[in-house]
């Protein structure tokens, strides 16, 4: 299948890209890695007049160290995130989740920024970015930037705080150096989107959990953070029994979808099982 015709621009700076978006308004669509957008265009679910390709903007690519944060350019591919030592050292939860996305070919093209703005509730990078308390830098018309917390970034199905004419430029992640991490993704067959997945990262002292962060994939219209479970885990020993009790309520207040892979109740049950596994693995138990 072939997309409907469009004009193509490939700016080389963020300012040029913002100017192109301002010029074409809602007729323009941003192209990052294309691994979600091109299937959408091919199926003619969308037919923009102009496609603005961010692939030739070097400033949007790469990972750097910024004191107590690492900063990931929105156009950094999954493969580059996976290969990056700063990410695996300071935000290993993200590395673990990215390793489960799609397949190697798609990870060579797909970008962290594209995935976050696409905001598919079954996507694997939303929950870790949320659990790690990331901040997202959004550039708007004229080049002003604003910073949105991950808590405020995901608004609904396929909807984020990035508005028309805006670009996500950076993902800033507070360093979680030395934290254990695990992404527990449940699928029926290989190469499948998450039915449910749980992102957990834990700082242990001795055998005790000192701090914990837990994010849920596909348990609602956006990725969710399980704050009450995070609190319940603090001070617990990293044993199966203690963690089982602390995570028992993880599905409370969630509204997961029902579909051919499982109904809502099944997903709620899965979430408790996967959270226990993820936290145990993150705590090194």
């Amino acid at each position: 299948m072939i997309p409907a015709s469009f004009d193509y621009v490939a700016p080389t700076t963020v300012d040029e890209a913002l100017a192109a978006l301002a010029e074409h308004g809602d007729d323009a669509k941003v192209l990052a890695g294309g691994q979600s957008l091109l299937p959408i265009l091919r199926m003619r679910l969308n037919a923009p007049g102009v496609v603005v390709d961010l692939g030739r903007i070097p400033d949007l690519q790469g990972v750097c160290d910024d004191g107590d944060h690492i900063v990931i350019g929105a156009m950094t591919t999954y493969a580059a995130v996976l290969a990056d030592d700063l990410v695996s050292t300071h935000a290993s939860l993200l590395s673990k989740a990215v390793a489960t996305v799609a397949d190697p070919q798609i990870r060579h093209r797909g970008t962290l920024g594209g995935a976050l703005v696409h905001a598919d509730p079954a996507g694997d990078v939303g929950a870790p970015v949320l659990a790690l308390g990331a901040e997202l830098v959004v550039a708007g018309p004229g080049g002003q930037t604003r910073t949105v917390t991950a808590d405020d970034f995901f608004e609904d199905l396929f909807t984020t705080a990035v508005g028309e004419g805006e670009l996500l430029t950076q993902i800033r992640i507070p360093k979680h150096t030395g934290w254990g991490a695990h992404y527990e993704k449940f699928v029926r067959v290989s190469h499948q989107w998450s039915i449910v997945a749980v992102a957990a990262t834990v700082r242990s002292e001795g055998g005790t959990i000192a701090e914990a962060r837990v994010g849920l994939t596909n348990m609602g219209s956006t990725p969710l953070r399980a704050v009450s479970v995070e609190n319940a885990l603090v001070g617990q020993p990293a044993t199966d029994e203690a963690i089982r009790a602390a995570v028992a309520s993880v599905a409370d207040g969630t509204n997961p979808p029902s579909d051919l892979n499982g109904d809502s109740d099944y997903r709620r049950h899965l979430a408790t099982v996967l959270t226990r596994r993820a936290v145990l693995a993150a705590a090194g138990a």
Partner: peptide, 27 residues
């Protein structure tokens, strides 16, 4: 396929594998 699932179209772009049904020629 029509969904970029099958991988039959895999080629190398600058030495890394990509699904060529999911890349524009202009890219």
């Amino acid at each position: 396929c029509d969904t970029s699932n099958c991988g039959a179209c895999t080629v190398h772009l600058d030495g890394v594998s990509v699904k060529s049904c999911n890349v524009l020629a202009v890219q």
